[in-house]
C-alpha cells in the first residue's frame, strides 16, 4: 500500500510541484481528455525536466497516459533517462498498473500522487507494482499518496459532468475512461 508521510521536510515545495501537475491536468480537461497531469522534478537541481498530460483521445491510443507522455518528453529533449534515478514524479492520480510498471523500468526515484485510482491503480489500489510485492526483479520505488487529492478529484468530476452533458455523441465513446477514480476515494 502507498504510504503517507516521509515528505514532511518539503511539503510546501511538493505542493508547488503538484499544482503544476494539476495545471497539466487542466490542460487535458480543456481538450476533452481525461484530466490527469504530471511533472518530473530533478531533485538535486530542483529543475522540472518534463511534464505531460493524458492524450489518449488525441492519439487514438489508450496508452498515452500523462506519465508515458512525460517520459517521451525527456527523451525528445535529448536527456538520458538515467537521470530519472534522481527524479520525483508528481502526478495528480495514482499511476495505473501499466504506468507503475513502466516507472519501475525507467527507475524513477519516488512517485507522489494525488487521488487514488480504484479501477486501475498500480501503486496500491488494484496491485502494488511499485514496491516489489510481485515476484518481478529490478528497481522499485516509494510512493506517497493524497497530495492535493481533492483538487484532482474535482477535475475528474468536471470531466464526467461534461461527458454527461454531451452524452448523445456516439463516436466519442468513453474514450480514456481508464483513469477514472471514484469520487468517494477520500
Amino acid at each position: 500500500m502507498a504510504s503517507d508521510g516521509g515528505v514532511a521536510s518539503s511539503d510546501e515545495q511538493n505542493a508547488v510541484y503538484m499544482r503544476l501537475a494539476l495545471k497539466e491536468a487542466e490542460m487535458a480537461l480543456s481538450k476533452g481528455e481525461v484530466p490527469v497531469g504530471c511533472v518530473v522534478v530533478h531533485k538535486p537541481t530542483a529543475r522540472i525536466i518534463s511534464c505531460g498530460h493524458n492524450e489518449t483521445s488525441e492519439a487514438f491510443n489508450a496508452t498515452r497516459h500523462a506519465e508515458l507522455v512525460a517520459i517521451d518528453g525527456i527523451l525528445r529533449a535529448q536527456t538520458d533517462l538515467s537521470l530519472l534515478r534522481e527524479c520525483d514524479l508528481f502526478v495528480t492520480c495514482e499511476p495505473c498498473i501499466m504506468c507503475a510498471a513502466a516507472l519501475r523500468d525507467v527507475k524513477i526515484k519516488t512517485v507522489v500522487f494525488g487521488c487514488s485510482n480504484d479501477r486501475f491503480g498500480g501503486c496500491g489500489s488494484v496491485l502494488s507494482v511499485h514496491d516489489g510485492s510481485l515476484p518481478i526483479s529490478g528497481h522499485t520505488y516509494p510512493c506517497h499518496s493524497g497530495l492535493l487529492a481533492d483538487e484532482a478529484i474535482a477535475l475528474f468530476k468536471q470531466f464526467y459532468s461534461r461527458q454527461n452533458v454531451k452524452a448523445p455523441e456516439p463516436k466519442r465513446r468513453k474514450m480514456g475512461r481508464q483513469e477514472q477514480p471514484r469520487a468517494e476515494t477520500r
Binding site: A62, T63, C96, M98, A101, F120, V129
Partner: peptide, 13 residues
C-alpha cells in the same frame, strides 16, 4: 508480455 504491455492491452480492449 510483461506487466506494462499486458496492462496496455487491457486499456486497448
Amino acid at each position: 508480455p510483461c506487466l506494462m504491455c499486458a496492462m496496455a492491452l487491457v486499456h486497448s480492449r
